[in-house]
């Protein structure tokens, strides 16, 4: 699903240039449930932005679903994001003056789906996440967990090939966090590739593969079987 090789990215910081990703190689298969970890400055946000086609990269290659993602103009990038990627953010990023249903329907608006049809589909997705009665509510009238579920419904509605979640539980208490992780697990079980960026070990431990970044390269990859070991090691640290 995702093939990244020798990825370089640096940012201009005034007269200096900050080299963030230094020849990163990464492969994620279809249907994987991956978390990307790393301390701040390790490049995980940069990697997520590149994966989400929100940012360009300097060198290397990035294939998403067999398609080379490189030097796309803004319109093309927006289209590709809309079709292939579902975003989930830490702070939900719902549009405040739109109700839950309209928020969920927004990606379909950019696919030029008719209003009636996309609202109907949005209701279906809200129903699936147990929020049908809240469809007419504004984000300000929803709890954090509900907001994140609306955001997840929004990420799913365009039937993307991968779900990118940036600290999806960062703004939630632990009970709600687990709830959200269960939903993501379900989505993954239905065959969707899910990638989350997190710095919380227990959240990462719920995924099937952990990729630890350090100084712009992958430090280690912990697969499903090793997770138990990883957990123990975390506890001792």
């Amino acid at each position: 699903m995702i093939q990244i090789s020798n990825l370089h990215k640096s940012y201009a910081m005034g007269s200096n240039s900050l080299h963030v990703l230094k020849g990163l190689n990464l492969e994620i298969e279809e249907g994987e449930f991956v978390s990307i970890m790393g301390s701040s400055g390790s490049g995980k946000s940069t990697l997520l932005n590149i994966l989400g086609i929100l940012d360009d990269y300097d060198r290397g290659t990035y294939y998403l679903g067999g398609k080379l993602i490189q030097g796309l103009n803004e319109t093309k990038a927006a289209m590709t994001r809309n079709e292939m990627i579902g975003f989930i953010f830490q702070s939900f990023n719902l549009i405040s003056f739109k109700n839950a249903m309209e928020n969920v329907a927004l990606p379909l608006y950019y696919q030029k789906v008719s209003r009636k049809k996309r609202n109907q589909i949005a209701l279906e997705y809200l129903d699936r996440l147990g929020l049908k009665e809240w469809a007419g509510h504004l984000p300000s009238e929803l709890s954090g967990g509900q907001k994140q579920r609306v955001a997840i419904a929004r990420a799913l509605i365009s039937k993307p090939q991968i779900i990118l979640a940036d600290e999806p539980t960062g703004a939630l208490d632990s009970a709600t966090s687990f709830e959200v992780m269960d939903i993501l697990k379900d989505i993954n079980n239905q065959g969707k590739t899910v990638i989350i960026v997190t710095h919380e070990h227990d959240i990462a431990a719920m995924t099937k593969k952990i990729i630890r970044l350090k100084d712009g390269v992958i430090e280690e990859v912990i697969k499903n079987g090793d997770l138990q070991l990883f957990k123990e090691r975390i506890l001792t640290e």
Partner: peptide
């Protein structure tokens, strides 16, 4: 800005 950012992430083209 934030709203526009969200829209763009969700697939809004510059033209829209």
């Amino acid at each position: 800005t934030r709203e526009i950012g969200i829209r763009k992430a969700l697939g809004a083209s510059p033209a829209s």
